[in-house]
Write a protein that binds this DNA or RNA. Sequence first.
RNA 1: GGAGGGGUGCCGGAGUCUGGCUGAACGGAACGGUCUUGAAAACCGUCGAGGGUACUGCCCUCCGUGGGUUCGAAUCCCACCCCCUCCGCCA
Length: 428
Amino acid sequence: MLDMKFIREHPEIVEEAIESKGEGDVDVQELLEADAAWRACTTELESLRALRNETSKAIGKRKKAGEDADDMILRMREVNEEIARLEGETQGLQSFMDTTLALIPNIPHPDVPRGIDEDDNVEVARWGEPRVFEFEPLAHWDLGVNLGILDFERASKITGARFSILRGAGALLERALICYMMDLHAVDHGYEEVIPPYLVNRDSMFGTGQLPKFEDDAFRVDRQDYFLVPTAEVPVTNMYRNEMLSATDLPLKMVAYSACFRAEAGAAGRDTRGLIRQHQFNKVELVQYTLPENSYEAFEDMRSQAEVVLRRLQLPYRVLSMCTGDMGFAQSKKYDLELWMPSYGDYVEISSISNFEDFQARRANLRFRRERDARPEFVHTLNASGLAVGRTTAAILENYQNPDGTVSVPEVLRPYMRGMDLIGNPLA
RNA sequence: GGAGGGGUGCCGGAGUCUGGCUGAACGGAACGGUCUUGAAAACCGUCGAGGGUACUGCCCUCCGUGGGUUCGAAUCCCACCCCCUCCGCCA
């Protein structure tokens, strides 16, 4: 959410942002008119309320003195009619403004490449070389099924399409990745470890920007109006909603594991095989709250912290700077990390690193004070996948496969897998 | 799921029966000052947020949330949410 004052003073910047992000359905001029009308209305309303307050006190005094106050009461009844009328008008304008404000996207950082869609994203780094296979490599969905560690058929029986069962060494690998990532970020990178609720309320979904625009992408629990979290970003960024932090609390760094649930209403038909696009997947997520002046430094830190995971797993990847049209509603700047997936013959998104500046903080009312008497300011919030676990599992299966259909276990994961170095060991 | 109790400012806690002078007593914490070689103690003072504006001022709103009654509500009425205790159930 943007600050109404900012919009009032810089409507052209806001219009430019809406345009560059392809969110063409918001009329800034109309909003400005509503804002002006709201302020006029409010001023009038408040002066009438002041009159009523003052008169009511006078009435109290008269009554106490045993005097008659019927004339004043009668007059206030008339004033109240006018107040009610103005209140209705003010509320109407207010709710129009709230609705409109909630649909205005964040303003892209000046460094962000301008563009329409994913073709305009800019590659800013690349690490590792895609492996050249001396045999015909299998896709992870074939490999995993052959090894008996992935079971899609039974998952669709017990739930439905786009769910999967990990079993045996597959489940162990997934769990090892979660533990490895959590340890790395908690111990080496200084994040507090968190396991949040997987169901959140509507206010939380609004706070991080999933609502109102993207309600169709989430799973909702009918009886409570709760949502299954699409990412741990939602519960963790909302942890300090409506709270006042002090500057010494910042930066606040949390690494959270959660299962993630996405309906992906618009994605039917894409990536239908394997683990790439599931309704439920595991993710380790980094979240930071920072001082406004430090958020871009933290942003780069988080990018490199996510990269470390891929490097230690020896998985080739590249880094994209997302263009304005592809970066999302709430972000100011965003990188995507994509790792090499042999079955796709291409790079596949494994992490996205986002700086929201104060956009989420304003929605969720996340504030801090620099000094005891200083006025409250909004923190900056950031997050990064560190990483999406299911896709990492898929990439390990594919990139570490051997000609005999077994899969070597990356060095760093072996301690987390009871020393296992090969999945599907023919001797076992 | 059943039965009670409760949600007030940074914290604790009055006020709610008997609506007005209560944006809120009192205590604590914190901050500034006096005193002191320094500190403690004592004393004095400050001490919520958001918004409007004719803005070194004035005004409005907020006592869990949303409605209602009234000239006027923290206080009365209705609905909902959350927390605590006991019982039941349960990993």
